[in-house]
């Protein structure tokens, strides 16, 4: 068992024939993912890695059972691609696009919520349950970083995830399911919304959160822990503790959240809720050892 994707999750790849789409489709299949079909307008009749390509999601959905859509679509076309997937009733969507316009991302998240669907991303590497399946762009050299195990990982970052997860592995652990929430100000799905899945997952003993300054996602995790909605151990690493203030934050953002959003505020909220906060990536592994010994 894993979260979000399982070994039998049937995945449609939108943007399958592009350079990125075809490259990562092969990789997803190699890592065990059930890729059933792809979509590229105008390319129906082609195949990628033996999987048929269709002109549209509706046409693919007429021929295949589809559980999830993986989007390799440029940021300006992501809104259209997400709505197209939702239109065919697809409930799990991952978009890696970096640069989705803010207002469109708000519309995407709103539409996903009203459809009872989950959109992960954008600006993320995607989702991986090592040894089971992968949707996104995770490297081939997975043993060193994405080795199977019992630690859940949620992250707002890319390269930093490689860094921190390598420390988890170095400490003798592996990853159950890793969800790349993404680095945009409005992610499709937020940290706290993934927690119920980790809570239920019998293959996850603890969750590592890789966060950073800005927004309120880490505070929402603390809230879920305080309310007893999430009961497994949490170790958090937060980038930007010593970052200079005031380079980008707008006043209105600060008010929505009642003064939350600084790294100090996040550390305080998480610590009070019972999470362990690691000052360095290396300490993430060490804290897990203390917690789970």
């Amino acid at each position: 068992m894993s979260i979000f994707i399982e070994s039998d999750t049937r995945v449609l790849v939108q943007g399958m024939t592009g350079k990125e789409g075809s490259f990562w489709t092969k990789h997803m299949i190699d890592l065990g993912t059930q890729v059933v079909a792809g979509v590229t307008p105008g390319k129906e009749g082609l195949e990628v890695e033996g999987r048929p390509v269709y002109h549209s999601v509706r046409r693919a959905a007429a021929e295949h059972e589809i559980d999830a859509a993986m989007l390799f679509v440029p940021p300006r076309f992501t809104k259209d691609a997400v709505f197209e997937a939702l239109d065919s009733g697809i409930q799990k969507i991952v978009t890696i696009a970096d640069g989705i316009p803010l207002h469109e991302m708000v519309q995407i998240r709103a539409a996903a919520r009203s459809n009872g669907a989950m959109v992960v991303g954008g600006n993320t590497s995607g989702v991986i349950s090592p040894g089971t399946a992968m949707m996104g762009m995770f490297p081939y050299w997975i043993e060193r970083v994405y080795t199977p195990g019992r630690i859940g990982v949620m992250t707002r970052s890319g390269s930093l995830t490689n860094e921190v997860t390598a420390m988890v592995v170095r400490a003798g652990f592996g990853v159950s399911s890793l969800i790349g929430i993404g680095g945009d100000p409005v992610p499709g799905t937020r940290f706290a919304e993934m927690l119920p899945l980790y809570e239920q997952d019998r293959e996850t003993d603890a969750v590592v959160i890789i966060g950073e300054l800005g927004g309120t996602m880490e505070e929402e995790v603390a809230e879920a822990m305080r309310d007893g909605r999430f009961t497994k151990p949490v170790v958090a690493f937060l980038g930007g503790r010593t970052a200079p203030k005031g380079k980008r934050m707008g006043h209105a953002g600060a008010i929505v959240t009642g003064g939350k959003g600084t790294v100090e505020g996040k550390i305080k909220a998480l610590t009070e809720a019972g999470a362990l906060v690691a000052e360095r990536p290396r300490f993430v592994g060490e804290l897990l050892q203390e917690l789970l010994k």
């Binding site: 708000v106 929402e220 707008g250 600060a254 929505v256």
Partner: peptide, 27 residues
């Protein structure tokens, strides 16, 4: 002001009759 609420996935109008000071101070 008008901004985005990333949790509710809406636009958000924020207003106060006590303007002139920084809004986070007012909060």
């Amino acid at each position: 002001s008008v901004t985005v609420d990333p949790v509710a996935a809406t636009a958000l109008i924020i207003a106060s009759a006590a303007g002139g000071v920084e809004i986070e101070t007012l909060a």
